[in-house]
Write a protein that binds this DNA or RNA. Structure first.
Lengths: 248, 248
DNA sequence: TATTATTGTGTATATCGTACACAATAAATC
DNA sequence: GATTTATTGTGTACGATATACACAATAATA
């Protein structure tokens, strides 16, 4: 996990007294999804002279675990108010294979709570933290080998996102405000990793009753200009809360 | 959360040096579901001279969180090899409203990982631990007020169980080996809290292709004797792994 | 002006979910 | 032993939903 150093002035201080600020043995890791050029991306961090990892952080003594994920996200993407969902806790004692920082605060055993976030790619300006040399987007089906069990965490996040499509709409957080039906379809196809019928997809989406079709069309591309849509936020939020399949 | 004292000889020793054996700030809580006399039950623990709570435990230094839930379950029910599923982590800093043991190890802030378990009611012999005076089954829609946020944890467990019915079979862990279709239906109705059509229910269950109808019928009750069924374990396990609705 | 690739729309069919009715029967009652 | 009662076993008709598929319209390009 990557860590926030805002509360310390040096790595050494952090390693010597992490307990002062954070709960020991506990971290959060964030799988941040974005959508760009018809593919699903995750935001990864690279340690200086080290491997890639998920952006993560630690939990302050008087902070909720949700809050600590929100803080991590804010620090890495600059965004507040983004969609965030806790999906699983990872707690094998040997999950940190090839551990570094042996004998230090960060070298202890950690149980980590996994969150995934959905963000508007175009609004994000990735920032590495003080211990990282890079922070950038990777294609979900082309991520490098990550430290510890972070590849597994990412897979589980993607699986959770896929499952959520069964009962919840997606897109509000991943697409720009105005978007076309083909864009929305590509998003679904990318997350599900399968092709969908264009006409049936449109019917389904419209039946969800969360879209508003605008008068405008998207111009500039070749071929027939597609209509632009936006989400009806109120209906979208309602669908997120209630779920879409109330069926048994 | 209730705690295991097996690793200590006194409460005082435990309070003074819990860190020696367990990860600090971290616990697991188990919502143990059983099914008896046509209603869904949860196993609760009562502190000596205190309120009721979910059975829980702490995580040893070299133990996975799953293992620590398994251990807790074994201690409380006597059962090993039971169905167990992690469903959510609860980490608000003030979740332990009305905290006791202020200033002691157990009085610290805890983030807890919630698990739910499905067990065969008739196989369980509830055992209180050394700090509890009682351990008994309660009807899910009639549980008393529990400590901390344990009522919320229980609700979330029930919700998770309900959602799981959408894509996974249930019953193998909650029913005796041989059972009737009406029994299975009651189980579903209890979990979903709604009445289901008898004929359609049977068709659905049979279409899941995890049941084997036996030649025997259940005798003894009044009225027409229903057939007995059992699960085809191989198919059941496959359905548990793959899920039942692969549809998008 | 013609071409090209893409979008907008509708229909026929199969599948699934839902509503519903009647015959069979094990125990209980008389 | 015949009758009553509540429950189980089974099948069918209907409507809703999912799926497969075809053709006209059009924005940019050639």
């Amino acid at each position: 996990m990557a860590r926030s150093k805002a509360d310390f002035t040096s790595l050494q201080e952090f390693q010597e007294s992490g307990d002062r600020v954070y709960l020991s043995h506990l971290s959060v890791d964030c799988v941040i999804f974005g959508f760009h050029e018809n593919s699903l991306k995750v935001l990864l961090l690279k340690w200086k002279n080290g491997p890639w990892c998920l952006p993560g952080g630690f939990v302050k003594h008087k902070e909720s675990i949700d809050q600590s994920a929100i803080r991590t996200l804010k620090e890495r993407t600059g965004l507040a108010e983004i969609f965030l969902k806790q999906f699983y806790a990872f707690g094998d004692p040997d999950r940190e294979k090839g551990k570094r920082h042996e004998g230090t605060w960060i070298g202890k055993r950690f149980v980590t709570i996994g969150y995934y976030a959905l963000v508007d790619y175009s609004q994000v300006f990735p920032e590495p933290d003080l211990l990282s040399s890079e922070c950038k987007w990777w294609d979900v089906d082309n991520v490098p080998e990550l430290i510890y069990d972070h590849n597994q965490i990412m897979s589980k996040a993607l699986e959770a996102l896929r499952l959520s499509l069964n009962d919840h709409p997606v897109g509000y957080n991943l697409l720009p405000e105005k978007f076309t039906m083909p864009q929305l379809q590509k998003l679904y196809e990318t997350i599900l990793n399968e092709a969908l019928d264009r006409r049936n997809f449109q019917k389904q989406m419209i039946s969800l009753d969360v879209l508003i079709r605008l008068k405008e069309r998207k111009t500039g591309g070749a071929h027939k200009a597609p209509f632009l849509y936006r989400f009806d936020k109120r209906k979208y939020d309602k669908a997120m809360k209630q779920g879409l399949r109330l069926s048994f």
